[in-house]
């Protein structure tokens, strides 16, 4: 139909009548596009991201992934979630499972993949994120950066067509940020469609096709990173960028 992978149309989300986290946001993401969402805290960027796989239920507007409407009450949301990988700020690895079990849980439980096949795939993914020697470790035995790379591998194991990243490096020490961003850069190069909430300007310049600036629940400005960073149109964008650049 369209060459958009994600279409967000007039999305609104309010947690109570007085608190509106997202107001009328419209955003389209093409296949293979990497979109970075920036903005001050409380600007609704995480809420917008979490609406895409319906971890937050939108109160207004519609979202499609390809031709499936995420916001439709009749859709099988689990089918959508299979195709949308998500990486969290706090990693959220399953604490009671080893690294390899963390990665195989999704495919084995949801897609009913056989144990051997799932483990073979998991080892390939661990190699991709540079952690092939950690498959028997428990999450608590890994550094933050290693945990986040396992979390990315876990999401990739479902072979998603979209990856959502919710501040993937915000909980990391500076020296670990690079190892996670490198994995994300590889993913972007492989043509993964990615929606990323992050303030990593280096990543934005290297991998993002589009940067979206949000403030007060609204999308204020959208543009390619080099243009948005160097020549923002809106006053609020300028003000925010002076804080982080």
């Amino acid at each position: 139909m369209s060459d958009y992978r994600i279409r967000i149309e007039n999305l609104s989300k309010s947690f109570s009548p007085s608190i509106q986290a997202v107001k009328n946001a419209t955003l389209n993401v093409k296949k293979g596009e990497v979109v970075l969402i920036i903005g001050p805290s409380g600007s609704g960027k995480s809420t917008l991201l979490r609406s895409v796989n319906r971890l937050e239920v939108a109160t207004g507007g519609r979202i499609w992934i390809d031709d499936d409407e995420v916001t439709s009450p009749t859709i099988d949301i689990r089918k959508i979630r299979e195709e949308v990988g998500m990486v969290f700020q706090s990693f959220n690895l399953f604490a009671h499972l080893r690294v390899i079990e963390n990665i195989t849980l999704g495919p084995r439980t949801v897609k009913k993949v056989k144990k051997e096949a799932a483990e073979k795939q998991a080892r390939q993914l661990l190699k991709k994120v540079g952690l092939e020697d950690k498959e028997q470790a428990y999450p608590a035995q890994l550094s933050g950066g290693q945990q986040q790379r396992v979390a990315i591998a876990r999401a990739l194991a479902m072979e998603p067509k979209v990856m959502l990243f919710d501040e993937p490096t915000s909980a990391l020490d500076p020296e670990m940020i690079k190892e996670v961003l490198d994995v994300m850069l590889d993913l972007a190069k492989d043509g993964m469609t990615m929606l990323v909430v992050s303030h990593e300007m280096g990543f934005a310049r290297a991998a993002a096709d589009t940067v979206v600036f949000m403030d007060g629940g609204e999308i204020i400005e959208t543009g390619p990173p080099n243009i948005l960073f160097s020549d923002p149109k809106e006053e609020r964008t300028k003000k925010f960028l002076t804080h982080i650049l």
Binding site: R78, R81, N92, F94, L105, T109, V110, A155
Partner: peptide, 30 residues
């Protein structure tokens, strides 16, 4: 059990029941 565990499980496509059985309850028991 931290809330993120359930979120991570359902984000993978597990049902709430599967997430409870495979992710939440094993950690609860401990």
């Amino acid at each position: 059990v931290p809330k993120g565990q359930m979120e991570a499980a359902i984000a993978l496509g597990l049902s709430r029941g599967q997430a409870l059985r495979k992710v939440i309850l094993p950690q609860t028991m401990k």
